[in-house]
Nucleic acid binder design. Structure first.
Lengths: 190, 190
DNA sequence: CTAGATTTTCAGTAATTACTGAAAATTCAA
DNA sequence: TTGAATTTTCAGTAATTACTGAAAATCTAG
C-alpha cells in the first residue's frame, strides 16, 4: 500500500469499521481511498494503491455503485472509468441512510405489519404481537421523522442540529404563546 | 425450532438482519426471541427453542450482555439464570445507540482528530486532511445532537419527532419574534 | 467489422467467522 | 467443605464470506 501515512490510517480504519457493519473490508477501504483522493481514480490505480486484485476492485466498485455512493466519469482520451466520492459529506450521509432504509428498515416494517394481521391463537402470541407493535411504532416514527428531516435544506437542518436540545426551548415558547394566542394572531405572527 | 409461526418469522428475520450488521445470526435470533417472550428464559430454553448448542447460547448471551441489551434475573428456587429484553423499546434503542457510539463513532472521531494534527507534507495530504475534517465535523455534529436528544424526556422527544419537519415552523416563528423581540421580552415570554 | 483495451464474471481457493462437544470453572445447597 | 447443578471456555470443525487468476464479455478507435 503506497499511500501517505495520513491516508493509510484513514483507509485502514474504514476497512475495519466496514467489517463491523455488513460492508466488507475491501469495500470500506476503496471508499475511504476515493473519499480522500484529490482526483478520480481508475480501477487499476485503486488495485495498485490498496494492493488487491483487479477483480476484487471491480467487485468492490460494483458494490459501492449499488449503494449509489460513487460518481463515475471519463477523462478525455482515456477509455478507462474513473471513480470518485461525492464532494458533499451531507449528501453522502443521506444516500447511505436512504439506501439502508430501503434494504433494512422497509423489509422489517413490512414483516412487522404482516405480523399485525395474524389472529393470535395463544396468549404467548398475543404478547408477541403486542411487542412487535411497539417495535413497529418506534421504527415507523423514527423513519418518518428522519425522512422529514431529509427533505429540509441542509442549512436548515444544520441550524436545527446546532441547536440540539435547545429546540425544546422553542417548544416551551410555543406552549406559552398558545396561552396568549389571540393577541399573537391579531398581530400577524402566524 | 418449536415456535409459533408468528414468533418464528420474527426470529428468523432478525437473524438475517443481524448478519447484515456486524451482529451474527445467532445473536440476532436470541435477542428476537427474548424480545417477544412473555417471560424470562434460561439458556437451556433458548437453546431448545432455537435449536442450537448450549455453548452457542452462552456465547450469544455474553455478547448481548456486552451490549447491555439483556436483563438478568433469578426465579425463586431455581439456580439458573433467566434472561429478558427490557420492556421499553425506546430504552433499548437508546442503549443500542450509545453502545454503537462507544464502539464505532468515538474511535473514528479520535482517529480523525489525530489526523488533523499531522502537518501535511504534500498537496494530496492537504486535500485528504480537508476531507477528513469535513467528515469529522459532520460526525461530531450528528453525535452531539444525538446525545442532546437522548437527554430529553421520552415524552418530549416523542413530541418533537411527531412534529417532524414542522419544527421548522417554530424556527421561522422564532425569527419573526426576534424582529419584534423588545415587545415580547417585556411581556415575559423569555 | 476487428483488434486491442478494459471490465466483468466465476470457479476454485484462502481466510474468516460461526458453532459444537467436551472439559474446566463456578456457584451454591446441604 | 463437598458435589451436583449450571455456566464458561476453548480447541477442533463446519459454514460462510472474501479474494484471486483466468477466461469471457464488452467496448471503442480505426
Amino acid at each position: 500500500m503506497n499511500l501517505s501515512p495520513l491516508a493509510q490510517d484513514f483507509v485502514l480504519h474504514f476497512g475495519e469499521m466496514g467489517s463491523r457493519w455488513g460492508i466488507n473490508r475491501t469495500v470500506g477501504q476503496i471508499y475511504a481511498l476515493l473519499f480522500v483522493s484529490q482526483r478520480p481514480l481508475n480501477a487499476d490505480e485503486i488495485a495498485e494503491a490498496l494492493a488487491f486484485s483487479r477483480s476484487n476492485v471491480s467487485m468492490g466498485l460494483k458494490e459501492l455503485e449499488s449503494w449509489r455512493l460513487t460518481k463515475l466519469q471519463h477523462l478525455p482520451n482515456d477509455r478507462r472509468e474513473y471513480f470518485s466520492a461525492p464532494d458533499d459529506v451531507w449528501a453522502i450521509f443521506r444516500t447511505l441512510a436512504e439506501e439502508r432504509r430501503k434494504r433494512e428498515i422497509d423489509p422489517t416494517l413490512s414483516m412487522l405489519r404482516g405480523a399485525m394481521l395474524v389472529t393470535p391463537g395463544t396468549d404467548a402470541d398475543r404478547h408477541a404481537q403486542a411487542r412487535m407493535k411497539q417495535m413497529h411504532d418506534l421504527i415507523e416514527m423514527a423513519t418518518m421523522w428522519f425522512s422529514d428531516m431529509q427533505r429540509l435544506e441542509p442549512a436548515t437542518l444544520k441550524q436545527l442540529m446546532g441547536m440540539g436540545a435547545t429546540v425544546t426551548k422553542l417548544l416551551e415558547m410555543k406552549d406559552k404563546l398558545k396561552i396568549v394566542a389571540g393577541g399573537k394572531k391579531a398581530r400577524g405572527l402566524k
